[in-house]
Nucleic acid binder design. Structure first.
Lengths: 225, 225
DNA sequence: CCTGAAATTTAGGTTGAGCTAAATTATATT
DNA sequence: AATATAATTTAGCTCAACCTAAATTTCAGG
């Protein structure tokens, strides 16, 4: 646990964390698809990661994997760096919302503990980044916040966009164009019964946006009482 | 030339650039020692680098290597990044002189063109970094300045420390402790005939430092008229 | 010209992270 | 119980960048 994990292993752990964050296991195929490697390679790697000391995950054959505490901490470490970088690039270097993810994806593996702490300090130890994602603190505990998908709120309910966890710049730019970005207040005007298409109003501008349930799943909300 | 060079190749080119910057060739053993790999590995790698299209260096068997124009540009690209990072970390994130080199050594390989340009802009397109090293501009042309080693000035001559190209934090901290760092004005008080030991005075404080010729070689000066 | 140092070659080995194809085994659903 | 999907195993392959040891070649200085 002392020496640095290679960046591909960090990627495995990060992805497993993301996939299992809602509970449950990460399957071989899910990992293969998100890491863009073959299922056979995933099985291989995952077996290795399960048998190291300390082991980073538990491997339920034919079922999937789950992080151990060591794996969870390793994942949080890299997620913390990722989100700090995103935040910093936007705050300090004028990056836009859709530019930061790719950059952070690379830099997170090249960041020293010192740089991490300097950036954290420069940002004033933030709990959330501009994407609305929680930033694990230096003890790797994750700020909690009640959040819910756009698909799960009722018609006429008002909410604030907390985060758009999607990574694809195209999707982010698309949503941004319609004003759908973190810290924006919205109201659900209607949802059609069959295809679940929604009309959403941006409170500030009064503009209306049509959005389907697939994309809506990507939008995390904070309900306003 | 389109796709990114792997970081070990970037390191080879950077080191060759540094070694040959005073003219001449970089030998196998020099490279092996600075890259911490075996001479056989260097020969191998160097032969590969000479036969790629475009070739990054010319290989004079048993003599050494020299960068081609493509190799020189690739080296300057990475050196530019290295020096921008050093500068930025000190300016924006409170790094000290001796902390930046190691960090830059890693980050230089993880830096996108976008990040490079943002940092360059944030620093106001500097020509030199706090180490006193020239920063190639975005066209990769290198600012020139007349510089000379501390070993090469005359007694009673006044000069300003331009740079301390050394990389070892211990050496940097050692020199720093005595006030020997870039932009400091000094005067050579004396040089003993046999072992070339020098007494150097820091103009600002009036303090005197004893320094031997080996360490003095590491200090580049700008002569004041 | 001789010799030692430097460089090279040869041959083979290692590590890590992948890949394929085909066969097999589990699991989950009908 | 049958079947399709998912996962696994097996065997063997690739690639890049290293390594070693020993033999050999070249070069440069005395």
């Amino acid at each position: 646990m002392t020496d640095q994990l290679s960046s591909n292993i960090q990627d495995y752990l990060k992805r497993i964390y993301e996939i299992t964050s809602g509970g449950g296991l990460a399957t071989t195929n899910q990992l293969a698809s998100v890491l863009k490697v073959s299922p056979a390679s995933v099985t291989n790697m995952v077996q290795k990661l399960a048998t190291t000391r300390p082991s980073y995950l538990v491997y339920y054959k034919h079922k999937g994997v789950q992080l151990t505490e060591a794996g969870r901490l390793a994942a949080l470490k890299i997620i913390r760096r990722h989100r700090l970088i995103e935040h910093y690039l936007m705050d300090a270097l004028g990056y836009t919302w859709d530019e930061v993810h790719q950059e952070a994806e690379i830099l997170e593996h090249a960041m020293s503990p010192l740089l991490e702490s300097r950036i954290d300090a420069a940002l004033g130890h933030p709990e959330f980044n501009p994407h609305g994602n929680p930033i694990p603190n230096s003890n790797l505990s994750v700020p909690e916040i009640e959040q819910i998908s756009l698909n799960a709120i009722d018609v006429n309910q008002t909410a604030v966009i907390l985060s758009v966890p999607h990574e694809d710049p195209k999707v982010l730019r698309y949503l941004d164009k319609f004003g759908l970005r973190p810290n924006v207040q919205i109201k659900l005007l209607s949802r059609t019964p069959y295809d679940q298409t929604m009309r959403v109003q941006i409170t500030a501008t009064g503009e209306e946006v049509i959005i389907g349930p697939t994309l809506a799943e990507e939008i995390a909300l904070l309900i306003e009482e």
